[in-house]
């Protein structure tokens, strides 16, 4: 069951949110009455989604969202009576995925949460992809560099140099990138790792 944290300073509205979410099959794992409590409860209960009111005592919802996201990226939906452009941009900047304007309807809430989760997953996937691409790029650079060193020092062609690296990788059972980096570190100790 998806765990949801709700932070809303008005009890009636919080009760309503809780009822709505539980009715839709979510588990309300934490109810916070202000921003600080929301940050603390998010840390303790590790929710899958957070629903935060913008205007709350002690710490406002946007700042609370920023802190929660700093600790653990989760989809967050803001709920507010303000419909201000500036607030929306602040929320987006903080990394919030959804926005719900009061008074909201039952039919607004669930899609907003779903959208936020989908976007969050999408972003997470993109992030992962970007990371692996960066990794691949770094490996490629190291290999090119190692090839260059071998070609220069041993008078090999590019293909021969690559074949030698691949062989070393096969023998040692280590990825090509690690072998290349080791080679650069050995033969050109002064140079920094790529």
């Amino acid at each position: 069951m998806t765990k949801v944290l709700i932070a809303e300073d008005e009890t009636i509205i919080r009760l309503d949110l809780k009822g709505l979410l539980e009715g839709a099959g979510f588990e309300v794992c934490a109810e916070a009455r202000d921003g600080e409590e929301a940050v603390r409860l998010a840390r303790e209960t590790e929710p899958d989604v957070a629903l935060l009111d913008v205007k709350m005592p002690h710490l406002d919802g946007i700042e609370a969202a920023r802190r929660i996201l700093d600790e653990r990226p989760i989809p967050i939906v803001m709920v507010t009576a303000y419909g201000e452009r500036e607030l929306v941009s602040r929320a987006v900047e903080a990394g919030v995925f959804g926005y719900l304007v009061k008074p909201f309807r039952e039919t607004d809430l669930l899609p907003a949460i779903e959208t936020a989760r989908a976007r969050h997953d999408e972003l997470a996937a993109l992030r992962e992809e970007a990371e692996s691409l960066a990794e691949a790029l770094a490996a490629r650079k190291a290999i090119e560099r190692a090839k260059g060193i071998l070609m220069q020092r041993e008078g090999l062609t590019e293909q021969e140099a690559f074949a030698r690296l691949r062989k070393a990788s096969q023998i040692s059972g280590r990825p090509l990138k690690v072998v290349a980096e080791a080679l650069i570190a050995t033969l050109e100790p002064g140079s920094s790792r790529t």
């Binding site: 008005e10 009636i12 309503d16 009822g19 009576a81 009061k102 008074p103």
Partner: peptide
């Protein structure tokens, strides 16, 4: 005006929530 709108909307939300609580 902004403050008033905000308060009105918040109160309407509370009313809507009360009605929804009752309806459940």
């Amino acid at each position: 005006a902004q403050e008033i709108h905000h308060r009105v909307k918040n109160n309407l939300q509370a009313v809507a929530s009360l009605l929804r609580l009752q309806s459940r």
